[in-house]
Simulated scan of single mutants.
Amino acid sequence: MALFNTAAQRKAGFRLTFISCLVAVIVLAMGVFTRLADAGLGCPDWPTCYGHVLWPSADHEVARANEAYPDMPVEHDKTWPEMIHRYLASSLGLLTIGIVIFSLRKRDPEQPMKLPIFILAFIILQGMFGMWTVTLKLWPQVVTSHLLGGFTTLSLLWLLTLRLNNQRWQLPAINEAKLQALKPLVLIGLVIVVCQIALGGWTTSNYAAIACPDFPQCQGAWLPPMNFGDGFNVNQHIGPNYLGGTMDNAARVAIHFSHRVGAMVTGLYLLFLFFKLRQLGIAPARKSAGVMLAILALQIGLGISNIAFSFPINVAVAHNLVGAFLLLSQVTICYLVFTAAVIRGGIRV
Rank of each mutant, 00 (worst) to 15 (best):
F4S: 00
N5M: 08
A12Y: 01
R15L: 08
L16D: 03
T17I: 06
V23P: 08
A24Y: 02
L28N: 04
L28Y: 02
R35H: 03
A37N: 10
P44E: 10
P44T: 11
D45L: 15
Y50F: 15
H52T: 10
L54A: 14
H60R: 13
H60E: 15
E61N: 14
A63I: 13
R64L: 14
R64V: 09
E67W: 08
A68Y: 14
Y69P: 13
Y69L: 14
I84N: 08
R86T: 10
Y87L: 12
V100C: 11
D108R: 02
Q111C: 00
P112S: 10
M113L: 15
P116R: 07
F118P: 02
A121L: 15
G127F: 09
M128P: 01
W132N: 05
T133A: 14
T133P: 07
V134H: 01
V134N: 03
V134F: 00
V143M: 06
V143G: 03
F151C: 04
T152F: 07
W158D: 04
L159A: 13
L160G: 04
L160W: 06
L160K: 04
T161R: 05
T161K: 03
N175R: 12
Q180D: 11
A181C: 00
V186G: 02
A198W: 07
N206I: 07
P216V: 01
Q219K: 08
G229Q: 15
H237V: 11
I238M: 15
I238V: 15
N241M: 09
G245R: 03
F257L: 04
T266S: 05
L268I: 12
L271S: 13
K276T: 07
L277Y: 05
I282W: 01
S288A: 15
A289I: 06
V291E: 01
I295F: 09
L296F: 05
L296Y: 00
A297S: 11
L298D: 02
G303N: 04
A308E: 14
F311G: 01
H319T: 04
V322S: 03
L328F: 00
I333C: 06
Y335L: 05
L336R: 11
